[in-house]
């Protein structure tokens, strides 16, 4: 009983911490402590966290290298803007339709491609991501190469905050379950996993679809913050961006993905005026991390309640 009580107390404590964090930022925004450019920064940070955590489910936990994540982001962005701007639906409908559309795209692309392995899969997903972009460029209804403009800004701090927390929560809960163990076993040894009775293909598809849905969510938030979306925004360079975050954080660590997403966002922000320098630094990060620390910042380790408890008791 005592244990149970303690778990509840920890839970309530965590909820309070999250609520306080939310309120502080919300308050700072309303009184104007956070200026426009920092608002952009915070928005990008949340979107990047969602992208990195969801790609990590595919690349890190399932071990299937995908290089087309930005494609799903595009699907989510376009689908939601059609709902909100063109059809006048409320934002929540845009969000749901965006996620759903990206999930369906993930399913349609995942089923045929996930039979491939390693670098072939990487190239096929890159190809599909590019096909999504080219197709969008050729549909007049969504503005062709010019994209969709005049999108109403509906992405606010509460939406961003909620979306980020939901993404992390869903993926962490999924991974720490029997389904998550099945997903990780695919990465560890596909053949052994099959022989444990696990239909590896369907778990790859599951991870791919869930990952794509959250990429779609990121796309929705992006579109409804920055007023404008263009196919070229969602090219493979954007996909590589997300891969950099996941690799830097450590393939298979959600904590790592979050930290790396925050770091990369700030780096991007700091080097805004020097786009080329930023990309040079990115590329060097990729190379150096792969050579000297291929497991990334966190490896597959996580910061969990246990870690905090250990730090806490260590201090006392």
């Amino acid at each position: 009983m005592h244990e149970k009580k303690k778990t509840w107390l920890t839970f309530i404590f965590e909820v309070i911490v999250l609520a306080v964090l939310f309120t502080i930022v919300q308050y700072a925004m309303t009184v104007g402590l956070i200026n426009q450019s920092y608002q952009i920064n915070i928005t990008s940070m949340c979107i990047n966290i969602i992208l990195a955590v969801s790609l990590n489910l595919i690349n890190g936990f399932t071990g299937q290298l995908s290089l087309g994540h930005a494609g799903f982001m595009a699907v989510g962005a376009y689908a939601s803007v059609i709902m909100t701007n063109n059809l006048g639906m409320p934002f929540i409908v845009g969000i749901l339709v965006g996620c759903l559309a990206a999930g369906i795209a993930g399913f349609l692309i995942g089923v045929p491609t996930l039979r491939l392995k390693g670098d072939y899969l990487a190239i096929a997903t890159l190809g599909f991501g590019e096909i999504i972009r080219v197709v969008l460029q050729n549909i007049d209804y969504v503005g062709g190469p010019a994209g969709m403009v005049g999108i109403t800004r509906l992405t606010s701090w509460p939406w961003l905050y909620a979306a980020t927390i939901v993404t992390i929560l869903v993926i962490v809960n999924l991974i720490n379950s029997s389904y998550g163990r099945a997903i990780i076993s695919v990465r560890e040894d596909e053949i052994a996993s099959e022989l444990m009775g696990i239909n590896t293909t369907s778990y790859k598809v599951l991870a791919f679809v869930v990952g794509a849905m959250f990429a779609g969510l990121a796309g929705v938030l992006y579109a409804h913050f920055f007023y404008i979306i263009k196919p070229e925004t969602f090219g493979f360079l954007k996909s590589f961006d997300i891969v950099v975050m996941v690799v830097l954080g450590g393939l298979g660590s959600t904590t790592g993905a979050v930290i790396a997403a925050i770091f990369i966002t700030f780096l991007t922000f700091a080097l805004q005026k020097y786009a080329a320098v930023r990309m040079i630094i990115y590329s060097l990060i990729l190379i150096i991390v792969m050579i000297y620390r291929p497991q990334g910042l966190m490896g597959s380790k996580e910061l969990t309640r246990k870690t905090f408890a250990r730090i806490w008791s260590g201090k006392k």
């Binding site: 390693g118 590589f240 690799v247 590329s283 990060i285 990729l286």
Partner: peptide, 11 residues
């Protein structure tokens, strides 16, 4: 190795 190659490409 593939990720490194992407890095070299960007570089």
């Amino acid at each position: 190795a593939l990720i490194t190659a992407i890095g070299v490409s960007l570089f």
